[in-house]
Design a protein around this nucleic acid. Structure first.
Lengths: 220, 220
DNA sequence: TAGATTGTTAATCGATTAACAATC
DNA sequence: TAGATTGTTAATCGATTAACAATC
């Protein structure tokens, strides 16, 4: 009936709970309460329970959550029961590192295709992945039914690359280009703008090294 | 009097407004209204005005904002009127790419110091930056008064590296390690967890390719 | 002056947290 | 049963948006 909309932040927290459960399981712990889980992140226990409640009832009253079972459920909800082939577009410094970066894989994600517009790069092989030209992008993605893309292209190229990807069937994009992408409804974009992140750090650094200004308007 | 707290999201949006102003200025535009600015990002014009109002009055009623002036003010607020020396810890695949990544610099940020615990890497030079051993970290950071750090270390090392950095005077950390850092109040941490980002994309991909489930509890 | 747009207050919306009945 | 902890509703908090007087 009512179209329950699940907050983006809830989904992000599910990933974080999952990582915690993996660590606990490795330590031999078999169950945990929402309070114990929340304390690990400085969160409220009600938030943990509410996040989980969006997807079902996974706990046992009086006892808490069975770790193996909750882990299984979170993996199922997050779509981690299958492997995902990921396409990389833009094989510059950052792109090459992402191919090679082990932590990136995180079990289940594999950059299996890479594209670049530079003829000099086409044909090169990085970590078993051969770089293809942009003309091959649409047909290859369509054939391999790739759904997840990583974009590490210049800002000026970002929008047109995104359009190519979506047209070829991609429904989720991790975008490192400092550009606002416009995509159809149903396509999910996650922006990772290092420049913006650095600027917020710069903002905080200035303030951390200044006397606290409580009211910016009081100094008239 | 009242301690006006500025939302993190407001600071992030300031960076985005600034990027837009730079583009507009390059196009020769000299002024813009909050509505025009908001439309570029699909935001509400009141939000633009409110974000700016946290820091002062930068507009002219009836006319909008003078671009050069607003740009100057945003740069001042974000602490971009000075250059920042940035320290990198962890020179693996990702770390090396960040040193070399041009987009990273974003005018004003320069990775001038790099540290790694691997003896094999110490002494190597990447893009004019010589990699130093971890024993040099605290004294060098202290001497150069570095305030901003980028961490690209394994999760297991993250907390202890963060502590070293903070102890040496760092007040802002861009953290690529998939770990929850505990730092003293006053130190700002920005997490960039690629694995978590990929998992949210996986979540959306599963849903994008399934019939919409409006109520997860109705299927009893 | 008339038209436009700001700065700001009030209304709305959504997310977090508290509280507690259900129940293991 | 008594104690503990869930699942869920209600209260609170904070952020977004609407509305409008101030004013260029």
């Amino acid at each position: 009936m009512k179209p329950v909309k699940i907050p983006e932040k809830t989904v992000t927290r599910l990933s974080i709970y999952l990582r915690c459960l993996e660590e606990l399981e490795a330590d031999g712990v078999t169950s945990i309460s929402s309070r114990q889980l929340a304390e690990r992140f400085g969160l409220n226990s009600a938030q943990v329970r509410k996040d989980l409640a969006y997807f079902g009832q996974f706990g046992v009253r009086g006892l808490g959550y069975h770790i193996a079972e909750l882990k299984h459920n979170l993996e199922r909800i997050l779509g981690l029961k299958q492997d995902w082939e990921v396409v990389l577009v833009g094989v510059g410094n950052l792109g090459s590192a992402l191919i090679a970066y082990k932590g990136f894989g995180a079990r289940g994600f594999k950059i299996g295709l890479a594209f670049d517009s530079s003829p000099a790069k086409v044909g090169q092989v990085i970590q078993d992945v051969e770089i293809e030209g942009m003309d091959r992008l649409a047909p290859t993605i369509r054939r391999r039914r790739v759904k997840i893309a990583v974009m590490a292209v210049p800002a000026a190229a970002a929008q047109s690359v995104a359009e190519l990807l979506v047209e070829a069937g991609v429904t989720a994009i991790l975008n490192f280009a400092p550009a606002q992408l416009t995509v159809p409804a149903g396509v999910k974009v996650q922006n990772v703008d290092l420049s913006v992140l650095l600027k917020t750090l710069s903002y905080h650094t200035v303030r951390a090294n200044r006397p606290v200004r409580t009211d910016p308007h009081s100094a008239e």
